[in-house]
Write a protein that binds this DNA or RNA. Structure first.
Lengths: 375, 375
DNA sequence: TTGTATGCGTTATCAT
DNA sequence: ATGATAACGCATACAA
């Protein structure tokens, strides 16, 4: 093989006598060989080099009008689409963002995933979805995340220090979504759940409730834990009796069972108020009280939840709750992650949204003037 | 350039003088150069060839115990993870499945996406999510799908013949989810919405309802359209007056507005029954009747929906509805698509699930014995 | 069982 | 503006 042979091989693919082979014919040949349509095919048909074709598909490249037109005509005729895998190999950009979210979270906040997808797409990337059955699966899932070479990760899960460190080591931008990670220096978009718990407890206490029941979430869930912690600490500060805490699993049935258990542990009497870790549990609690136990809500029992999911606003419920601004959070998450991808340098940023009290009609409340504000 | 020079370039990547360099040192060097850890790095540290490393990460390959051990030790030390983009380039398998679903659909059937993701993951693939604001965006989204080289597509959208044909031409396995595509030969998992509409109309008619209102969905949605068509045709067959049809947008507010419009168009009087295109609209209709208009349901008005979403089963509603077996459908979809990916040959298969009548308590119903069965 | 050499389809660099 | 050529990181014939 001589120096002259190598170029000869390349140009053999573009015979000089056939500046523009028949498109249909060439396409049929590709189909026959069961090959994919590549930029070489387009180059051959258009009578230009492969690199010219590549440039035509790159936004800011310098190509002449005529070349561009010939290439595009050939590309359309062959139905050519650039191969993202090959592109990402050299550009080191896959244009994919991993979203790690627990299956349960999607069931209760479908708008989170919908909004994330919408916002990520708007910025020219796609969502590669990693769903968790339990948060403990996170480690296994992370291995897959590395494989796929995503440009960034939005994780709606609680990460250990070691896990956060691995993101840094691998230089993969990480955005922790809807988790606090106190003390960790990771980019975060969250809602202050602890404060939400405090605020709700304050409002209920101000109305004179003394005996509280709390339907908590599962132990591994940081969101529910923070809410419970906030509520409990506030109640303690106010010198109220310790609340009766039962565990739930975020679902409707947990709300019903939870209320029954609280009543049982309260000597068969209803407490003054029940704070539920999520709206769906609050709705279960509410339905149990009204339809199964015949308790008037809020006259005999106050019920409150967290999230302000859509059903909480339905007329049959009109739940007293703390709004969790999911949509804004999702939009902020997509925006912040994108910034991190473009400029990985910066210092960790935390965007914490404030929860908003929704009065509803399932809790007796004091007039605002007499309300003691949260510390 | 001579014949000998070319190979020399390649082997330069594995210097002969360093059979087993220090792992930590090598890793630091990679970090410093801002390179990724590749199989060459592992090979270098383990003192084997790159292909040996590759084989160690391929399940059924033939590697000796000792080689395997040395490679794995080096790989772990370097935190090596194979690059899926590079792998897919040569294997022609990305291990990604595209799921195309409208944002609205995810809001109403979050279990669909959750279950799809779970089932797809179980089979060793990942979900690349494509959400649609409107079904008309489908064409634009398909171009992206081709780029990413997904192994298959689950499309919860109505596809044109041309679109289905493009899948065939590009040899990308397609599974149409929750859409009927009558007359098209595409692999399908769906629920018979037309039959669901007929069945619901039959049950309500058998109980003596004569004046019907229907709250339809948006025009571009095939699911709602089929349900409405089934109900209307069945009512016509039974010789009942034409129902009053109003358009909704699948949300709670549409149910409330829809009922008011139906009553207005019925001369200010409530109809005997309202069939709503989805449960969420039925719940809105129900709440409007009970809480805004003071109508007793089902005594003065029967209300029924479709889907059997979770809230329809809550005690405050206990809605009469037709179950749409989303979870089974999602599982079937993942299974069938996987089969198609492994063996693209077969003839198109359609798995149609039967809807199931859920009695609930929001409609007056005749005893089953007197019921006229659907044709 | 192991290593050599090649190619997957693209972008980037460098001449021209 | 254009073309030749070298990566990108891996899997796979093929030879040994």
């Amino acid at each position: 093989m001589t120096t002259k042979d190598a170029p000869a091989l390349k140009s053999a693919r573009q015979p000089a006598r056939k500046p523009a082979p028949d498109i249909a014919e060439h396409k049929a040949a590709i189909q026959r060989d069961n090959r994919r349509v590549t930029s070489y095919d387009v180059a051959l048909v258009a009578g230009v080099s492969q690199s010219a074709v590549s440039r035509c598909f790159k936004p800011g490249a310098s190509v002449s009008k005529t070349t561009y037109a010939r290439v595009m005509k050939a590309a359309e005729g062959l139905e050519y689409i650039p191969n993202a895998a090959a592109r990402s190999l050299i550009t080191r950009r896959s244009n994919m963002v991993a979203v790690i979210i627990s299956n349960a979270a999607n069931l209760y906040y479908p708008e989170a995933l919908s909004e994330l997808s919408k916002q990520v797409t708007r910025r020219g990337k796609r969502v590669l979805l990693f769903t968790l059955q339990r948060e403990s699966e996170l480690d296994a899932v992370m291995n897959d995340v590395w494989q796929y070479q995503v440009d960034g990760v939005i994780a709606a899960a609680t990460l250990s220090d070691a896990q956060v460190a691995e993101f840094a080591r691998r230089r993969v931008p990480l955005l922790v979504f809807n988790r606090s990670l106190r003390g960790q220096t990771a980019n975060t978009v969250a809602c202050d759940q602890y404060e939400a718990g405090r605020a709700l407890a304050s409002r209920l206490a101000a109305a004179g409730h003394r005996i509280f029941g709390i339907i908590d979430g599962t132990q591994d869930n940081a969101v529910a834990t923070e809410r419970r912690r906030g509520a409990c600490e506030r109640l303690a500060e106010l010198g109220l009796p310790e609340p009766i805490i039962v565990r739930g699993h975020f679902d409707y049935a947990s709300g019903k069972l939870g209320l029954r258990e609280i009543i049982a542990r309260n000597g068969g009497r209803a407490p003054d108020a029940v704070i539920c870790g999520t709206d769906v549990m609050a709705i279960g609690c509410l339905d149990c009280a009204r339809h199964e136990l015949g308790l008037a809500v809020p006259a005999q029992l106050s019920v409150a939840g967290f999230d302000a999911v859509e059903p909480s606003n339905w007329l049959s419920y009109n739940l007293t709750t703390m709004r969790h601004p999911m949509q804004q959070m999702a939009a902020a998450a997509a925006e912040l992650l994108h910034k991190l991808i473009d400029d990985p340098g910066g210092v960790a940023e935390k965007r914490v949204f404030a929860p908003e009290f929704i009065e509803g009609a399932t809790a007796r409340l004091a007039p605002v003037s007499s309300m003691e504000l949260a510390a």
